[in-house]
């Protein structure tokens, strides 16, 4: 073959270095933000806050007990919420009209009323049913059974279940229909296919919003302070009622919330990585 004749005037650019680009906008914005943060910190440092008090109460036993209670409540409520959410999502997608209606009704009821109202209702359930239990097996006075812990857990978990069910449902729908066909073709029952094939793939879609919900739950437990559950904000309030150091104790609680949330974020990344098995695009 004779050499091809190429048109003249198009230079060979191999080996030419690529010039560094200066991002003026980024540098300027970063500098502005640093200045703003400095000003803000200085304002708070010079404001009427006793930082020594913040430090003193940061590790006070009541506060530490409070943050432990916060985490316990958030973990338990979220776990129950996820279990409920999966069950309700599967009910919602079943072909049984009774299950579909029950699931839809549950979601409607618990998403439709404010959480704080639900917590107050559970806590005061003794006004409606003075004695609760299973007839013939066990029963007790509602005021004894419905402790702040039980009322908060019930309220938070049932409310969370309603929201989580929608997140799980979205995840299940996002899995390709062919996956379901393939699972059925190797003889899996509907439930088996859901557990082994569909849900593990749905996890990839479900985890980022669930992480969001869990972080939100950590902070939502503070609502349980209205029914006397001794979580960290409740402890902080009790202390400032006694010593009037309102801002200092709110700072203490705030710092603890930030610490817990900061620990959770990398945990979410680890989980996401675990469930992105087999996909090219993993979270970095």
């Amino acid at each position: 073959m004779p050499p091809r004749k190429l048109a003249p005037g198009f230079a060979d650019t191999r080996g030419m270095p690529i010039a560094r680009r200066l991002y003026w906008g980024r540098w300027l914005a970063a500098a502005l933000i640093v200045v703003l943060i400095f000003l803000l910190l200085r304002a708070f440092a010079q404001g009427q806050i006793e930082w020594a008090v913040v430090a003193q109460f940061f590790t006070a036993p009541a506060i530490l007990k409070g943050i432990v209670n916060t985490v316990i409540m958030a973990v338990l409520a979220m776990t129950l919420g996820i279990i409920l959410g999966v069950i309700v999502a599967v009910m919602r997608l079943s072909s049984n009209p009774v299950l579909v209606s029950v699931a839809a009704g549950y979601t409607w009821l618990f998403r439709g009323t404010p959480l704080i109202l639900q917590l107050l209702l559970w806590f005061n359930i003794a006004l409606v049913f003075p004695v609760i239990g299973f007839p013939g097996i066990w029963s007790g006075r509602a005021v004894d059974v419905m402790t702040p812990f039980v009322a908060a857990l019930l309220g938070l978990a049932l409310n969370q279940g309603a929201y989580t069910s929608e997140v799980i449902r979205a995840g299940i729908i996002s899995v390709d229909e062919g996956q379901h066909d393939a699972a059925r073709a190797i003889g899996m029952s509907k439930i088996h296919a859901l557990r082994r094939i569909v849900l593990p793939q749905a996890m990839k879609v479900v985890l980022p919003p669930l992480g969001n919900e869990f972080i939100s739950m950590i902070k939502t437990t503070s609502l349980a302070s209205v029914i006397q559950y001794p979580e960290v904000l409740h402890s902080a309030e009790n202390i400032y009622y006694a010593n009037s150091r309102v801002i200092e104790l709110l700072f203490v609680a705030g710092l603890w919330y930030l610490i817990v949330v900061s620990i959770l974020t990398p945990l979410q990344m680890l989980l996401e990585r675990r469930f992105s098995r087999g996909t090219a695009r993993r979270t970095k």
């Binding site: 062919g178 066909d181 393939a182 059925r184 073709a185 593990p200 087999g278 996909t279």
Partner: peptide
């Protein structure tokens, strides 16, 4: 599901389990 065990199916779009 038990009856399906007697047949094997190959799909147009493979449908392998990606995970």
């Amino acid at each position: 599901a038990r009856q399906r065990l007697a047949t094997g199916m190959v799909f147009q779009r493979f449908n392998l389990f990606p995970h």
